[in-house]
């Protein structure tokens, strides 16, 4: 009998996936339902927002944004 599991399918680069897995480990493995392959993970629907915010924070630390070019005429 087929089984269906509700969740949010997340597609991302392998590098981002590594960060997601790390975040998952830091949160009692409570976010990821299933690691599908290098670029896909299934995430609990209730934890998706949390993951988005955590990922944003994690990226803020690692990726430096280039300074805005001057707006003056």
């Amino acid at each position: 009998m087929p089984r269906a599991m509700p969740g949010v399918l997340v597609q991302c680069d392998p590098s981002i996936k590594a960060i997601i897995v790390k975040i998952n480990a830091e949160h009692n493995h409570d976010i990821i339902v299933e690691e599908i392959d290098e670029e896909h993970v299934l995430v609990k629907t209730s934890k998706h927002e949390l993951l988005k915010n955590l990922l944003k924070d994690a990226l803020k630390d690692t990726v430096k944004e280039a300074a805005e070019s001057s707006e003056s005429e």
Binding site: P2, R3, A4, M5, G7, V8, C12, V33, L42, V43
Partner: peptide, 23 residues
């Protein structure tokens, strides 16, 4: 956008390969 997300359902254990293809 570092990740794209879809809400929905993951279906597995569909049965034989033929059943899977049909589904």
């Amino acid at each position: 956008e570092r990740m794209t997300a879809w809400q929905g359902f993951m279906i597995r254990d569909v049965g034989s390969q033929e059943d899977y293809d049909k589904a």
